[in-house]
Design a protein around this nucleic acid. Structure first.
Lengths: 223, 223
DNA sequence: TATAAATATAACCCTCTTATTACCAAGGCT
DNA sequence: AGCCTTGGTAATAAGAGGGTTATATTTATA
């Protein structure tokens, strides 16, 4: 049984595009153009994830989120908000309503899919990835190994931890605080993270460039 | 009943070579040159493992993988991707559609067989191996014996336990905790493990070097 | 463009992990 | 008993790894 994803988005073309890409990944997308429909769909289909545009003609996305979080049966459905701009306000409000992630328009389908996967993984519905490919690199989390072709790239434990965290959040910025508290789990200055990132970029060579800095926040992998 | 392995590879010669080597190992290989055939074969034969070239004339390998992962009956079939070393950089993204391993062309038949075995073992379909070759050493877990040619290398019970654990996890790091709790099953200090490892390395001579330390974690066998 | 803020980089030092050695205790065997 | 073997511990040595700081560079914004 594939995972159901409810897309609530009034722009029909965008909704189709999203649906198409999710389907390609083996998910089962359901599309709603209006908030009112969404509520109905939610109860009938109990989707595994909710992709919610913040701006809707009838209800706004936050109201739907509020509703979801107020119902016992729906409460655990993870939510990803789709926001028009990078509105701090929206972002904050979204997270306070229990959003699991947000994505700002315009976004690439690839990025969206990556986030969906990441959120589902955190919700325990998607099995954890252990092998990744990043450009010409192979990364095997089980073997704790990074290879370029046959050549092994030696990473220190800390470097590997950080790389793993970035991979698991592919496309989504990871804050320094998160890296320090949740990944390294020790109390260090945030400059320290920069230093590890520098070393990682260095060791990964060409692919090091996909580690992007997100100013005022942290780092992310990918576009 | 031998395990069925579906090979999807458009290069007929390579496919034959792979099939030949897998057959020699007691598997039952099935070859498809096209993605479309593969889908049919999959449903009819329910193979135990899928060897999938990423580049195919019709579908690309990823699409097949997506399909497999979207079908309930097929979802659990492990997949090993065959990729060309210098794949276009456009895949600058972390991904894997549930791939269990990768192998890059060109590869040796021996390497391929080793990966197939490893993946099948993880999937619990391969019976446990009892004898291994490690460089110039022969290791027989049943007889609890290690030989270099005709000369027997005497290991103590503890040393043998540790070596066995490493062999069964070839290439994958084994943590000290695992060795202490699951292998030795007694409550000892972790420095103690180091000492046994040292003795092992000493006794195994040249091959002792393949016991690698994985800093901050434990030890592993292999490249 | 000037300025402030954030990040990148390089150098240094200390700490933590592992390697290695020596020694001790327990048990088996002659 | 005395001798070996085995496994565990403790102490010390060696070195990789990680943290901090100072300085340079980049980026955002007035």
């Amino acid at each position: 049984m594939s995972l159901k994803i409810l897309i609530v988005e009034d722009d029909g073309d965008l909704a189709e595009l999203i649906a198409y890409n999710l389907k390609k990944e083996g998910y089962q997308p359901l599309v709603c153009l209006r908030g009112a429909q969404a509520i109905k769909h939610l109860e009938e289909n109990q989707p595994d994830l909710l992709l919610l545009d913040v701006m809707l003609p009838d209800y706004d996305g936050f109201r739907i989120a509020q509703y979801v979080k107020s119902q016992d049966i729906l409460r655990d459905i993870p939510i990803i908000f789709i926001t028009a701009r990078d509105m701090e306000q929206d972002k904050l409000r979204g997270f306070s309503l229990g959003a699991d992630d947000y994505i700002t328009k315009p976004f690439s389908p690839r990025e969206l899919v990556a986030r969906v996967k990441a959120v589902l993984r955190r919700a325990g519905k998607e099995k954890r990835q252990t092998h990744f490919r990043l450009g010409g690199l192979y990364i095997d989390l089980e073997k704790k190994e990074v290879k370029r072709g046959e050549e092994v790239i030696e990473l220190t434990p800390t470097e590997f931890l950080i790389l793993s965290a970035l991979l698991e959040n592919y496309g989504k910025p990871v804050s320094r605080d998160y890296l320090i508290e949740r990944v390294l789990k020790r109390d260090v200055y945030d400059r320290t993270v920069d230093v590890h990132i520098k070393k990682l970029r260095e060791k990964l060579g060409e692919e090091g460039k996909v580690i992007q800095t997100v100013r005022g926040f942290g780092y992310k992998l990918g576009s």
